[in-house]
Design a protein around this nucleic acid. Structure first.
Length: 580
RNA sequence: GCCGUCGUAGCUCAGUCGGUGGAGCGUCCGCCUGUUAAGCGGAAGGUCAACGGUUCGAACCCGUUCGACGGCGCCA
């Protein structure tokens, strides 16, 4: 999928253009808003070197291609985008350099959308841009884009209505068709949305009409036509086609309106085209960007721990074993120990890795392969650890709410409500949680774990996530730090998502006393040899430190209001399924 | 590891006191110039998960196997 506007080079020119222009034309506004204001204008050195017909430009057009060289010219005043052949192109109109030199009128700089490299410089006349002569800013667009062809647009862009009653061109996949004799309605989707395309017999060539009438669901198509407002069209806009072509025809699509869970899982590679699944992927992408942003602005270093390991940090029955040459290795179920060893240099680290659990879990909350977002920081106690967690989570939510409002609405989640989930989250001690549950008629006693039913009860009516802190030692792993206020418990916390979605983060301050760690390892019958390197970390300048692991797919399940975690990941891996 | 449900057309399902298998959607053909999961008419499409047993006769009763799904525990 081509982005509508390209990035850095375009941005640098456009930012300059914006600042020096009095009235940007409406069609350019989007590009300007994407231009980075911090990007300093850079003069582009250009020199014409030869004349050629560029194969990606219309055959009839003859252009001068330019090679990069000194000298420099100033940036253009106006940018327009052109579509040439099948590849979207970007054109920057350079104003006349001076009135006495009409040769330089209507000059265009063209670059392919996905490349930052300049593909060619075109001029109506021959000549060089002078190194010292600055090009005056023109008050209006000097070159009309119409002489190229209609630009390709994303459906989201088309639905903005900017091109109302004007020619538009979209491409995508047929989402649904309906026909009625001389008229065919095709709903076309692309990665950004759906729009109805209407084809009337006689308006477009018969051959193209027939192609539209017989094109099956999921055929990839390219359509040219006029964008009109029409209340009868879903979404309020439709494209009245004047040109229609099937790029890739589709056999009868196996997913119809009636679908069983089993079928959708077997046809996962096709089902992920659905609007819901697309929305989930976009939301997840945005959550991740929010997380990255938070880590970056808090001086965390993103590191890359191994996936193949030789040591089992927790109960080894949960590990996937694999043949590793002449011995065995395991797929990592947490990067924690590796992150702990990295804090002695980087101090604050985080990593996003797949984690693997060979548990035969059959629940809506478990995958055997999931995306684990883990953090570890030196000089951090568990209170600060929890503050980091709530800040991180709310940054992720803010990001999704800001970047994916329509996707969230499609999934039944109000973006405004999501962005209101801000720190502090409520903290409930394990003991308090047990009290509360007993008050609600649960038969639990101190020392029993919080099951799915208990977690649901604690969070079903909440809007904000809930921290449950200081669990009994028996319920948690050996590496956690003892709670000085209550030696029966650890300095740890679980973060439970609201609305009954359950645990999304497990975190703790780490034990720094090797004697205690060794004692606990002996108690659970671990082979000390496997932990030598881990114990080393406490021997050489140990520091108090904490960290946590967040289940990215679980967060996405909650944010997207999904019933099952497997819909939060494109190709779920569960006990029963590794296909497709 | 534990508890539960299901397997009939490409898809979703109905069908059984045991007697030669049905609908809707999809596909194909025909009609329809404003459809909204369009409508109307017609056609094709099935080793009733597999194997074994009971019976004159099994999609249906019994057994075994395979596959899938719902949930618990474990965790993120």
């Amino acid at each position: 999928m081509y982005p509508l506007f390209s990035y850095s080079l375009t941005a640098s020119w456009l930012s300059t253009a914006t600042s020096s222009m009095k009235r940007p034309t409406p069609r350019l506004r989007n590009s300007f808003s994407q231009a980075s204001s911090s990007f300093l204008p850079r003069p582009l050195p250009l020199k014409l070197s030869r004349t050629a017909t560029d194969p990606i430009l219309p055959q009839s057009s003859r252009f001068e291609t330019a090679a990069m060289a000194a000298p420099a010219i100033t940036p253009p005043s106006t940018a327009i985008m052109a579509k040439a052949s099948l590849r979207p192109m970007y054109a920057l109109t350079v104003p006349r350099s001076n009135r006495s030199s009409p040769k330089h009128n209507s000059s265009i700089l063209i670059m392919p959308s996905r490349s930052f490299r300049v593909a060619g410089l075109t001029l109506t006349g021959k000549g060089f841009w002078s190194p010292n002569k600055s090009v005056p800013i023109a008050p209006k667009v000097l070159y009309s884009v119409q002489s190229f062809s209609i630009r390709m647009q994303s459906i989201r862009q088309v639905l903005s209505g900017e091109q109302l009653d004007k020619p538009v061109k979209v491409r995508g996949w047929i989402y649904r068709t309906r026909s009625s004799g001389g008229i065919v309605f095709a709903v076309v989707r692309d990665s950004s949305g759906i729009i109805q395309v209407t084809m009337k017999k006689g308006v477009l060539p018969d051959q193209e009409f027939e192609a539209a009438a017989s094109a099956g669901v999921e055929s990839s198509v390219m359509v040219e036509g006029t964008l009109v407002e029409d209340k009868r069209a879903p979404g309020g806009y439709e494209v009245r086609a004047t040109k229609f072509s099937v790029i890739g025809s589709s056999e009868p699509f196996p997913i119809t309106e009636y679908q069983s869970t089993e079928l959708l899982l077997d046809l996962r590679h096709l089902w992920i085209r659905s609007r819901e699944q697309t929305a989930v992927m976009r939301v997840k992408d945005s959550l991740l960007r929010g997380a990255r942003g938070w880590f970056h602005s808090n001086d965390y270093v993103e590191v890359t721990p191994p996936i193949i390991t030789g040591v089992a940090p927790e109960d080894s029955t949960q590990l996937f074993q694999l043949k590793y040459f002449d011995r065995f290795a395991y797929l990592s179920q947490t990067a924690q120990f590796y992150l702990e060893s990295l804090i002695f240099s980087c101090e604050r680290v985080w990593a996003l890795t797949p984690s693997f659990r060979a548990e035969k879990s059959r629940t809506p909350r478990h995958l055997t392969e999931f995306w684990h977002l883990e953090m570890e920081a030196a000089w951090l106690d568990n209170d600060a650890n929890m503050k980091a967690q709530e800040e991180l989570v709310s940054s992720m939510l803010r990001s999704a709410a800001k970047e994916c409002p329509s996707e969230l609405k499609l999934l039944g989640r109000e973006p405004e409500a999501l962005s209101k989930i801000e720190p502090p989250f409520e903290r409930l001690s394990y003991s308090e949680a047990m009290e509360e549950l007993r008050g609600k008629g649960f038969e639990v006693s101190w020392g029993s774990d919080l099951g799915a039913a208990e977690e649901r009860e604690l969070t079903k009516d909440r809007i904000l996530p809930l921290f449950v802190v200081n669990y009994p030692k028996e319920l948690k792993p050996f590496y956690m730090k003892e709670n000085p206020d209550d030696a029966r418990t650890y300095k740890n916390s679980d973060l439970l998502a609201p609305e009954g979605y359950g645990e999304i983060i497990g975190g703790s301050e780490r034990e720094t006393d090797n004697a205690l760690i060794i004692e606990r390892l002996r108690d659970i019958g671990e082979d000390m040899k496997n932990y030598e390197w881990y114990l080393d970390l406490r021997k050489y300048g140990s520091v108090p430190h904490s960290g946590f692991g967040l289940g990215l797919d679980r967060v996405a399940t909650w944010v997207c209001r999904l019933e099952h975690i497997r819909d939060a990941i494109p190709f779920p891996r569960t006990v029963a399924r590794i296909y497709p």
